[in-house]
Amino acid sequence: MQIIDVLKKYPASQTSLLEILLEIDRLKDNHYISKEEVHMISEYLGVRTSHVYSVLTFYTLLSTEPRGKHIIQVCKDIPCYVNDAFDVRKTLEKMLNMSVGQTSRDGLFTLEETACIGCCDEAPAMLIDLEPYTNLTRDKIERILASYREVTL
């Protein structure tokens, strides 16, 4: 689907902005909103690019830079932190050979941190795309990453 088709699905009003941004992000394998897209959205909605860019950069689930096919978001809030015996973040960084904020060389994963995702009872937890993974252990993380790699291959 073209960006213009996404835009046409929504009324040309400022209130559609967030939904449009989310849909474009979902649509693209590299999950980001480009400068050209910001201009197109601002023209369609009749708002300034500064407004679109402001909303786009406010939400951590959106990005202005290309990201991986799958976005791993590690919860950094207190219950996950307290229950995290082996350091989920560091484990992921090691397994993926990159740090938070980066994208793996094969373009498969981007590693990010997120605020509470509501899985405190099964902490530590993380999201991959919109799928929650809870009660994480080192082995579990390894299996999860492998499953994503398999599907892609």
């Binding site: 500064s50 860019y53 406010f58 202005t64």
Partner: peptide, 16 residues
């Protein structure tokens, strides 16, 4: 001019 990013990262400036 608009506010960009959030929290500690927040800045003021034009788009991009």
């Amino acid at each position: 001019l608009e506010t960009m990013h959030r929290g500690h990262e927040m800045t003021v400036g034009p788009a991009f």
